[in-house]
């Protein structure tokens, strides 16, 4: 059984894993990172989206062994203590969630799309979220939240808040 080393939300784990173990099952069943849920079998729904070395991936479509030596950030690793990530706040403020099952993946995908466009248009947001399905919200408020989160993140990126910015750039 391969032994892997993986950092999840800042904590480094060494685990012996079956080659077929899915990253999402490693997170949920072995490491207790149940904040990341599973919604499908085919990589369509995006509920299980996490950051792998800073880029969004669907953790149901990655083997745990493929994450060997990598850094994973889940929804549980976004907040700084009790201070939520601006995107978490924006989802709350804009009522961008109802049942909340898609929310962890949606937030990770939202943060990811801002890497390329810190001030995305509605269309850019909709395209950037095409791999994440929500059944409750009709997406209107999610789109609003992502744009709000984007604005708040760029305001925070002001030089005088360099320290916080550093954290945001690194973790999400």
């Amino acid at each position: 059984m391969p032994r892997i080393t993986v950092t999840v939300d800042g904590i480094t784990y060494q685990e012996d894993v079956e080659p077929r173990l899915l990253l999402v099952h490693l997170l949920r069943d072995r490491l207790g990172k149940t904040g990341t849920p599973i919604g499908c079998d085919t990589g369509n729904c995006g509920a299980c989206t996490v950051m792998l070395d800073g880029m969004s991936v669907k953790s149901c479509s990655v083997l745990a062994v493929q994450a060997d030596g990598n850094d994973v950030v889940t929804i549980e690793g976004l907040a700084h203590g009790n201070e939520w990530h601006p995107m978490q706040k924006a989802f709350h403020e804009e009522h961008a969630l109802q049942c909340g099952y898609c929310t962890p993946g949606m937030i990770m995908a939202a943060i990811d799309l801002l890497r390329d466009d810190p001030d995305p248009s509605e269309e850019t947001v909709r395209e950037g979220l095409e791999g994440n399905l929500c059944r409750c919200t009709g997406y209107c408020n999610i789109v609003r939240a992502v744009r709000r989160g984007a604005r708040e993140m760029s305001q925070r990126s002001m030089p005088e808040q360099a320290e916080q910015t550093e954290r945001e750039v690194r973790t999400p």
Partner: peptide, 19 residues
């Protein structure tokens, strides 16, 4: 009012049955 439910849902501190 912003929802009370959101806090656990946006931070992943959820109790889905599979959890």
């Amino acid at each position: 009012r912003r929802r009370k439910e959101d806090a656990r849902l946006v931070t992943g501190r959820t109790t889905w049955t599979d959890n």
